[in-house]
Amino acid sequence: MRPTCIIQVKHKDLILIEALPKKKKEELYPRPNIPINNFQLLKYSHPNYRLTAFNDHLIQQGYNSTVNFRPINPPVHDNLNVPNPLRNTDLIKKLFDDIAISEDLQGIAVTLAPFNDLEFFTDGSYDSTNSQAGFFMGYGWTTSNLSNCNITYNGSLKFFPSSTKAETMAILTALVVCPEFGIITIYTDSQAAIDSFHKSKNLHTISPRRFNKINNNILWSSIHFIIQSLSLKVKLLKVKAHSGNQFNDIADI
């Protein structure tokens, strides 16, 4: 059951509630009122416990990365004023616990450090008929404004599959490798991702209840944390899918 509303009230006794399906209705009998005086009020908000439970689920499932990527022929830039990429390194280590993924993203962050103005084409997909376990959701992106050689990146996701979640992860991994104070333009064919980006932008003004109604809210909160930490100026633009755009096709592949 997915909770849709969280109510926290101070009460001298804990109130027990028994929830059963409708077909069990005829089996219900009045139960005595048993007061319980020992209970603990929730210390943190519901999103905090939801994230903790999800992380515990990943650990129990033996989560492991399927990404195996190394940049080839990285682009070069004549600008010697390279911002310190250590802030990217710290962010990546916090957000990605898989060593292979962390090293890949750190390497890309160092490569892109000299470029203050970057353009990305991102894409995500979900195919429930895929025969390879763990590859139902795929995401990828490519830079599009580098003259020497554009960088591409791709990976896969597990758990709670949707095409919008894959697109959101593509945006997250693109932003986390951007240089500090960068001006970033992201082209995506997902209007849902653009709407969610703007909807979750002012997280400090959103109540916990409304925040929980935003799909993939944990990923979006991480995206806005990255933007704030790196002082990025980010703009998302809609591009038509399968319109013959070279870079959009690369991200789609």
Results as ranks from 00 to 15, higher is better:
Met1Asp: 10
Ile7Thr: 12
Val9Ile: 15
Lys10Met: 12
Lys10Asn: 13
Asp13Pro: 00
Leu14Thr: 08
Leu20Thr: 05
Lys22His: 08
Lys22Glu: 12
Lys22Trp: 03
Lys25His: 06
Glu26Lys: 14
Glu27Gly: 03
Tyr29Leu: 02
Arg31Ile: 09
Asn33Ser: 07
Asn33Met: 03
Pro35Phe: 03
Ile36Gln: 07
Phe39Ser: 10
Leu41Met: 09
Tyr44Glu: 08
Ser45Met: 02
His46Asp: 10
Asn48Arg: 05
Leu51Ala: 11
Phe54Tyr: 14
His57Arg: 09
Ile59Gly: 00
Tyr63Ile: 12
Tyr63Asp: 04
Tyr63Ser: 10
Thr66Ala: 04
Val67Trp: 06
Asn68Ile: 10
Arg70Ser: 13
Pro71Asn: 07
Asn73Arg: 03
Asn73Asp: 15
Asn79Glu: 13
Leu80Met: 07
Leu80Glu: 14
Val82Met: 02
Pro85Leu: 03
Asn88Thr: 05
Thr89Met: 04
Leu91Glu: 06
Ile92Leu: 12
Ile92Ser: 04
Lys94Ile: 09
Lys94Ala: 13
Glu103Arg: 03
Leu105Cys: 04
Val110Thr: 08
Thr111Leu: 12
Leu112Gln: 09
Pro114Thr: 06
Phe115Arg: 06
Asp117Asn: 14
Glu119Met: 05
Thr122Gly: 09
Ser128Ala: 13
Thr129Gln: 13
Thr129Ala: 13
Thr129Pro: 01
Gly134Met: 13
Met137Asp: 10
Gly138Glu: 06
Tyr139Ser: 06
Tyr139Pro: 04
Tyr139Leu: 11
Trp141Ala: 00
Trp141Phe: 12
Thr142Asn: 09
Ser144Tyr: 04
Asn145Val: 03
Leu146Gln: 10
Ser147Asp: 14
Ser147Gln: 10
Asn150Lys: 08
Asn150Ala: 11
Thr152Asp: 13
Asn154Thr: 07
Gly155Ala: 02
Leu157Pro: 03
Lys158Phe: 13
Pro161Cys: 08
Ser162Val: 02
Ser163Phe: 01
Lys165Glu: 09
Ala166Cys: 05
Ala166His: 02
Thr168Val: 15
Thr168Tyr: 08
Met169Ala: 15
Ile171Ala: 11
Ala174Trp: 02
Ala174His: 04
Leu175Gln: 09
Leu175Met: 08
Val177Gln: 09
Val177His: 01
Val177Gly: 00
Glu180Asp: 13
Gly182Gln: 08
Ile183Leu: 01
Ile183Thr: 01
Ile186Asp: 05
Ile186Asn: 05
Thr188Cys: 06
Ser190His: 07
Ala192Pro: 00
Ile194Val: 02
Asp195Val: 02
Ser200Ile: 07
Ser200Thr: 15
Thr205Ser: 07
Pro208Tyr: 00
Arg209Ile: 14
Arg210Asp: 15
Lys213Ile: 01
Ile218Glu: 09
Leu219Phe: 11
Leu219Met: 04
Ser222Tyr: 01
Ile223Asn: 01
Ile226Phe: 12
Ile226Trp: 12
Val234Lys: 08
Lys235His: 11
Lys238Asn: 10
Val239Thr: 11
Ala241Met: 00
Ser243Trp: 03
Gly244Asn: 04
Asn248Cys: 01
Asn248Arg: 03
Asp249Leu: 02
Ala251Thr: 13
Asp252Gln: 04
Asp252Leu: 00
Ile253Tyr: 14
